[in-house]
Design a protein around this nucleic acid. Structure first.
Lengths: 153, 153
DNA sequence: TTTAAATAGGACTAAAATGGTCCTCAATTG
DNA sequence: CAATTGAGGACCATTTTAGTCCTATTTAAA
């Protein structure tokens, strides 16, 4: 189903909450209470987001987490990569050593096209978009097809 | 990583082989030999593709599988849906009952935009594209961004 | 200077999804 | 009627994922 993991889903919920009042420092405990996600799980997610430079953290009493930049500059692609690693639909698109399938696998180039398309779609939606009321987004819902898009002249 | 399953990956390999000489009826055994994928696994995939009307089958001696339509009419989206079910990046985009997260989940509408973008990207590549030599595809690799695409007038 | 509150990092366990195999039945051809 | 091939589904083993917990480390405040 091309599903992303629950942790990534949680991450968007957490970040959406933090983006509503950005600049503010939130403790993991507070986020857990507000979102209803268990504290250890929240911690795990926040740590991953710090490693990916989506959040910055301060330790000690009064410490916590805050957005590293404005919600406009945080894309869905960045969030997904932080939690799940590089966006690639097939195994062979990541490890460059190609697949061991003897005969008919010269299709990896085509997967790369698809990967790029998906990546760009995910890169095009930011955290700021996510916290807008839904109505504003609906007109954008009619969408893209590669064959209609005359990119190569 | 937004990965699709191995079975789906195998399916594209199998279909690429079948598309090279379409119209021809291939037995599961033959496909297994050619692709190097174990027979029971090949069978499982072929059955799923028949259920999704991507392939048609004939039983009995001299039976086997053939494409249900031309490679131009079989999209990557169709193949993925056949093996993995509907394309949806989050759980809540499938089950319409919404998530139980108490507070801040009014972002499902935004996921739908992303789902549509991904779906359309996958719908835009056909089996016929997949069996073309890679070179022809590379110019298309510069890609799409929602914000540049003035769809709603 | 001590204490409490907070994150960092990683190990570990349990649960769920996936991959892969196998068995029995049904259909078709020679 | 026998051989070949697909249909359908049950099943197990493995891998992945989710979730928890423990032990530092850092910082602010008492």
């Amino acid at each position: 189903m091309l599903r992303l993991s629950k942790l990534t889903d949680y991450a968007t919920v957490i970040l959406s909450f933090m983006a509503k009042d950005n600049e503010r420092i939130c403790a993991a405990m507070e986020i857990s209470t507000v979102t209803g996600i268990a504290l250890p799980t929240v911690s795990k997610i926040l740590k991953a987001l710090v490693n990916a430079h989506v959040l910055v953290s301060t330790r000690g009493t009064k410490g916590g987490y805050a957005l590293a930049t404005t919600p406009e500059n945080i894309t869905v692609a960045t969030i997904i990569i932080a939690l799940e690693g590089p966006i690639a639909v097939t195994e062979c698109s990541i490890s460059q050593q190609g697949c061991e399938q003897a005969a008919g696998c010269n299709i990896s180039g085509h997967w790369n096209v698809i990967n790029r398309a998906i990546y760009n779609a995910l890169e095009s939606v930011t955290l700021a978009d996510m916290i807008k009321p839904q109505e504003t987004l609906i007109p954008v819902a009619s969408l893209y097809r590669i064959e209609n898009h005359n990119v190569s002249q």
